[in-house]
Protein backbone atom coordinates (compact mmCIF):
# COMPACT_ATOMS: atom_id res chain seq x y z
CA UNK A 1 0.00 0.00 0.00
CA UNK A 2 2.96 2.33 -0.55
CA UNK A 3 2.31 5.17 -2.96
CA UNK A 4 4.97 5.60 -5.63
CA UNK A 5 6.46 9.03 -6.15
CA UNK A 6 7.25 10.17 -9.72
CA UNK A 7 10.99 9.72 -9.14
CA UNK A 8 10.59 6.12 -8.09
CA UNK A 9 10.97 6.93 -4.40
CA UNK A 10 8.13 5.92 -2.09
CA UNK A 11 6.48 8.54 0.07
CA UNK A 12 6.79 8.57 3.85
CA UNK A 13 3.01 8.88 4.11
CA UNK A 14 1.03 5.81 5.06
CA UNK A 15 -2.24 4.67 3.51
CA UNK A 16 -4.77 7.56 3.54
CA UNK A 17 -7.48 5.13 4.58
CA UNK A 18 -5.66 4.01 7.71
CA UNK A 19 -6.04 6.22 10.79
CA UNK A 20 -4.37 5.52 14.09
CA UNK A 21 -6.13 6.10 17.37
CA UNK A 22 -4.57 5.98 20.82
CA UNK A 23 -7.20 5.78 23.56
CA UNK A 24 -7.27 9.10 25.44
CA UNK A 25 -4.73 10.73 23.13
CA UNK A 26 -6.51 12.73 20.41
CA UNK A 27 -4.69 13.53 17.18
CA UNK A 28 -6.55 16.85 16.65
CA UNK A 29 -5.40 19.52 19.10
CA UNK A 30 -7.52 22.47 20.26
CA UNK A 31 -6.52 26.13 20.04
CA UNK A 32 -4.72 28.24 22.64
CA UNK A 33 -2.29 25.63 23.86
CA UNK A 34 1.11 27.02 24.76
CA UNK A 35 4.24 25.68 23.10
CA UNK A 36 5.06 23.87 26.34
CA UNK A 37 1.62 22.26 26.47
CA UNK A 38 1.95 21.07 22.88
CA UNK A 39 5.50 19.77 23.39
CA UNK A 40 4.61 18.01 26.62
CA UNK A 41 1.58 16.39 24.98
CA UNK A 42 3.51 15.16 21.92
CA UNK A 43 6.39 13.86 24.04
CA UNK A 44 3.88 11.76 25.98
CA UNK A 45 2.12 10.58 22.83
CA UNK A 46 5.34 9.58 21.10
CA UNK A 47 6.55 7.76 24.23
CA UNK A 48 3.27 5.85 24.31
CA UNK A 49 3.63 5.06 20.60
CA UNK A 50 7.19 3.75 21.07
CA UNK A 51 6.27 1.79 24.20
CA UNK A 52 3.49 0.11 22.27
CA UNK A 53 5.90 -0.88 19.47
CA UNK A 54 8.38 -2.27 22.00
CA UNK A 55 5.66 -4.20 23.87
CA UNK A 56 4.16 -5.77 20.77
CA UNK A 57 7.53 -6.36 19.07
CA UNK A 58 6.47 -4.29 16.08
CA UNK A 59 9.86 -2.60 15.77
CA UNK A 60 11.03 -3.23 12.21
CA UNK A 61 9.85 -0.56 9.75
CA UNK A 62 8.67 -1.45 6.23
CA UNK A 63 11.33 -1.81 3.54
CA UNK A 64 11.33 1.83 2.47
CA UNK A 65 12.31 3.24 5.83
CA UNK A 66 15.14 0.80 6.46
CA UNK A 67 18.74 1.86 6.51
CA UNK A 68 21.47 -0.32 4.93
CA UNK A 69 22.48 -3.24 7.11
CA UNK A 70 25.81 -2.80 8.91
CA UNK A 71 28.53 -5.46 8.92
CA UNK A 72 27.42 -8.37 11.09
CA UNK A 73 28.77 -8.59 14.63
CA UNK A 74 28.86 -12.03 16.23
CA UNK A 75 28.76 -12.95 19.90
CA UNK A 76 30.88 -15.60 21.65
CA UNK A 77 28.22 -18.19 20.82
CA UNK A 78 28.57 -17.47 17.11
CA UNK A 79 25.15 -15.87 16.86
CA UNK A 80 24.75 -12.52 15.21
CA UNK A 81 24.27 -9.75 17.80
CA UNK A 82 23.31 -6.76 15.66
CA UNK A 83 20.26 -8.26 14.02
CA UNK A 84 17.70 -6.04 12.32
CA UNK A 85 15.31 -6.59 15.23
CA UNK A 86 18.02 -5.61 17.71
CA UNK A 87 19.05 -2.48 15.82
CA UNK A 88 15.55 -1.09 15.41
CA UNK A 89 14.61 -1.91 18.99
CA UNK A 90 17.71 -0.06 20.16
CA UNK A 91 16.85 2.90 17.94
CA UNK A 92 13.39 3.17 19.46
CA UNK A 93 14.75 2.77 22.98
CA UNK A 94 17.27 5.54 22.34
CA UNK A 95 14.57 7.84 20.96
CA UNK A 96 12.37 7.14 23.96
CA UNK A 97 15.27 7.83 26.27
CA UNK A 98 15.85 11.22 24.63
CA UNK A 99 12.15 12.08 24.94
CA UNK A 100 12.10 11.12 28.62
CA UNK A 101 15.18 13.24 29.25
CA UNK A 102 13.56 16.21 27.54
CA UNK A 103 10.32 15.65 29.47
CA UNK A 104 12.13 15.50 32.80
CA UNK A 105 14.26 18.53 31.98
CA UNK A 106 11.39 20.74 30.86
CA UNK A 107 8.30 19.66 32.77
CA UNK A 108 8.04 19.38 36.54
CA UNK A 109 5.05 17.04 36.50
CA UNK A 110 6.51 14.75 33.83
CA UNK A 111 6.25 11.05 34.61
CA UNK A 112 8.34 8.46 32.73
CA UNK A 113 6.43 5.38 31.57
CA UNK A 114 6.00 2.60 34.13
CA UNK A 115 8.16 0.15 32.20
CA UNK A 116 11.08 2.58 31.96
CA UNK A 117 13.96 2.14 34.38
CA UNK A 118 16.70 4.64 35.03
CA UNK A 119 19.23 1.81 34.87
CA UNK A 120 18.12 1.45 31.28
CA UNK A 121 20.41 4.38 30.52
CA UNK A 122 22.07 3.75 27.22
CA UNK A 123 25.81 3.81 26.80
CA UNK A 124 27.16 5.87 23.92
Amino acid sequence: NMVQEPRGRTTRWGDPNVKVNFPGLPTNLPARLSKDEIDSYIINLRIEEISQKLRTGNVIPPERARSPSPEPVYGADGKRINTREYRYRKKLEDERHKLIEEGQRRFKDFKPPADYKKSNKHVE
Binding site: G14, F22, R46
Partner: peptide, 9 residues
Amino acid sequence: AGRKFNERT
Protein backbone atom coordinates in the same frame (compact mmCIF):
# COMPACT_ATOMS: atom_id res chain seq x y z
CA ALA B 1 -4.79 13.71 11.95
CA GLY B 2 -4.04 10.09 12.76
CA ARG B 3 -2.35 9.41 9.42
CA LYS B 4 1.01 7.66 9.44
CA PHE B 5 4.17 9.47 8.37
CA ASN B 6 7.53 7.78 8.85
CA GLU B 7 5.78 5.11 10.95
CA ARG B 8 4.69 7.87 13.32
CA THR B 9 1.17 9.05 14.09
